[in-house]
Structures are given as structure tokens and as C-alpha cells.
């Protein structure tokens, strides 16, 4: 005889959308689509004995309910147990010690803002991660000097995006990655398709060549299942904070300090304003607190805690809380417009 209670593993969290739901598996980094009726059984009747659940539905759906739950057991989302009280839920509070967790600095060939000045300020705030986007094709020397800036700094991750140039060889870039272990990823954009190397020619995992043209900040803000992130950090942060902008600071290609380089509002120029002062401003932190639960349409979407938000390009520029403009998903119909899938 089967045990009395069904329990979801605490890392498998049901999220209700308008027309269907997901179970987000924060441990195995995946999700499962489920019907809303199953969401109801898992949440409203959580902790109730199987027999009680059957009775709630007047014993009309005993077999269906059992089949659903057996499916979840088979997929290892949950288990039957005699002691559900021993398995508390996951606390979904997001914890992070850093006042700024992520910095984004943009450059094009006309940029004048000096990186060392920026890095020094971020270092004082113990910012652990930085992303540098070169919309143009910088020389090897520029890339080297850039990475040199991070020697003896507390940054744990440096990511770079740079434009393609035939003068940058795979060998040179590989050597660069070996010399600077902080470099976690290097993406070379605008690569002519005939020059994209076979993956077997690249010996390190963090070097990628892509055809896509990332020559301005407008390349950002895309919403697609490709960018879904299903893990504990992301999911807990998205409960109360903006999944793109929280504790982020950006310096755009002209040196203006912003939440995101694609946004128009700025909080001063890097030459005259200190990053630490900007980070403390309530006006600057406002965007950090726009969670998906506040965004129209997104709040009804079953993907809202695994999807990156975008506040720079919104569907209705008159409404700061409207959904990301580049999202093609309709949670009311549970359909994707074909264009962005792939």
C-alpha cells in the first residue's frame, strides 16, 4: 500500500501561469510544464493525505490524480512519504553580501572613459563580476591591457565581448585566456560566417565566435527560452528583485552611469560622479526592486522566475511596468510567436 502523502522535493517549485504552470527544478536546472489543475493539487492541497485530496474532488478523479502524482515520482520531482512534516519547504529568501554584484562597461572606438578608474571604484565595493562589451574590434593590446587592469583585484569573474578582427588569432586569444584565469568568457561577435572556426579548433571552453552583430547596446533585451535560467540563485532573486538589474551598475559607451546602458536615464558621468554615491541613491535602486510579479503580463506567466527581465525595452514605453518589448510569449494563450524560437 502506498504511503499517505505526496511530497514535492523542496527544490522543485510549482509556479502558476494563466493557462498552465511549471515545476521549476532548481537543482537539476530544468522545468516541467504541468496543467493548472496539478498546480492546484500540489499547492492548495499540499500536506494533505492522499485520501483527503481524493475526497476534495469527490472521489471522481482518484485515478487521474494518482496518475499525475505517479508521473511526478517517475520524473523524480517528488515522492510518497509517511512523514511530510520532516520535509520543510525551501526558504526563498535571496542572500548576497555584495552591494553591487555585477558591473557592465561598454566601449566603442570613440570611448574615452578610463577602465582603471572604474575598476578601482568597483574594487572598493568588492564587486565580484564584470562584463566588458567592445562594440568595435579592439586590438590584442587593448584586450591585454584591459585584463591587466584586473590583476590583484578581487574580481572573481571577467567576461568580455569584442568585435571580430582578422588580426586576432585563436592562438593569441587562447594564450590570453590562459594568462588571465579570471577571464570566464570571451565572445567574438560579428564574425563573418566563413571565419567561424570549427569547435574542434578551439581548445578552451570560454572562447566563442558568433556571427551575430553586437555592435550596439540595442542587441540586448531578448527574451527567449534559450535565456531561461533555472537555478536557486536566479529563482530566489527573482522573487523580490529585478532579474536583470538588481545590484547591477553600468557605464555606457559615452561614460554615463546607468542601471543599464540601453536605458536613457543616467545618474551622472563617470568623470564627475562616484559609483559608490550612485549605488546608494534610492532613485538608482528603484529598478532593482521591479520584480516580475509587478510587471504586467509577466505576472501571469509561468516562466516569470526563470526568465531575464528587461526594463530598457518595454512593450509600452508609457508604462514602466509593461512587459519586455522583445518577449514574444503570450501566457494567456500559452503560445510563442514563431520569430524568436530557435
Amino acid at each position: 500500500m502506498r504511503q499517505d502523502y505526496f511530497v514535492l522535493f523542496a527544490c522543485c517549485i510549482p509556479v502558476k501561469g494563466h493557462s498552465r504552470s511549471t515545476i521549476c527544478d532548481l537543482q537539476r536546472n530544468s522545468f516541467e510544464l504541468i496543467p493548472n489543475i496539478l498546480f492546484e493539487i500540489l499547492t492548495e492541497h499540499e500536506g494533505k493525505a492522499m485520501q483527503t485530496i481524493f475526497a476534495t474532488y469527490h472521489h471522481e478523479y482518484n485515478r487521474e490524480i494518482e496518475e499525475y502524482l505517479d508521473f511526478l515520482v517517475e520524473k523524480e520531482y517528488g515522492f510518497y512519504s509517511a512523514e511530510p512534516q520532516s520535509f520543510p519547504k525551501l526558504d526563498l529568501t535571496w542572500h548576497n553580501p555584495f552591494p553591487v554584484t555585477h558591473a557592465l562597461v561598454d566601449f566603442d572606438e570613440k570611448s574615452k572613459h578610463p577602465l582603471p578608474h572604474i575598476v578601482k571604484q568597483l574594487t572598493a565595493m568588492f564587486c565580484p563580476a564584470i562584463e566588458l562589451r567592445f562594440f568595435h574590434a579592439p586590438s590584442l593590446e587593448v584586450l591585454e591591457n584591459t585584463l591587466q587592469t584586473f590583476q590583484d583585484s578581487p574580481f572573481r569573474s571577467v567576461q568580455m565581448i569584442a568585435g571580430y578582427s582578422k588580426d586576432l588569432t585563436i592562438a593569441q586569444l587562447t594564450a590570453l585566456a590562459y594568462q588571465y584565469p579570471r577571464l570566464q568568457s570571451l565572445v567574438i561577435h560579428s564574425t563573418p560566417s566563413e571565419n567561424i572556426p570549427a569547435s574542434s579548433d578551439i581548445s578552451i571552453p570560454h572562447l566563442t565566435f558568433i556571427e551575430q552583430n553586437l555592435s550596439s547596446e540595442a542587441c540586448c533585451g531578448n527574451i527567449s527560452p534559450r535565456y531561461f535560467t533555472v537555478n536557486r540563485q536566479f529563482f530566489t532573486e527573482a522573487q523580490t528583485f529585478n532579474s536583470c538589474l538588481n545590484r547591477k551598475i553600468s557605464i555606457d559607451k559615452r561614460g554615463f552611469i546607468k542601471n543599464c546602458p540601453s536605458m536613457t536615464q543616467h545618474f551622472g558621468h563617470i568623470e564627475a560622479t562616484s559609483l559608490a554615491d550612485v549605488v546608494k541613491q534610492q532613485a538608482f535602486q528603484k529598478a532593482w526592486h521591479i520584480s516580475k510579479d509587478q510587471v504586467t503580463t509577466c505576472q501571469d506567466c509561468e516562466f516569470r522566475y526563470v526568465c531575464h527581465d528587461c526594463r530598457a525595452y518595454v512593450a509600452n514605453p508609457g508604462n514602466a511596468l509593461s512587459k519586455p518589448a522583445k518577449c514574444r510569449y503570450n501566457p494567456y494563450e500559452a503560445t510563442w510567436e514563431a520569430a524568436t524560437i530557435g
Binding site: F9, C11, Q27, R28, E76, S86, F87, P88, K89, D91
Partner: peptide, 12 residues
């Protein structure tokens, strides 16, 4: 590939 489930537990 398929890690064991690690979940919070309340000891008696």
C-alpha cells in the same frame, strides 16, 4: 548527470 535530491530536513 542526474544529481541526488538534496532537500531541507527537520530532525525530530
Amino acid at each position: 548527470q542526474n544529481p541526488n535530491r538534496f532537500v531541507p530536513y527537520q530532525l525530530p
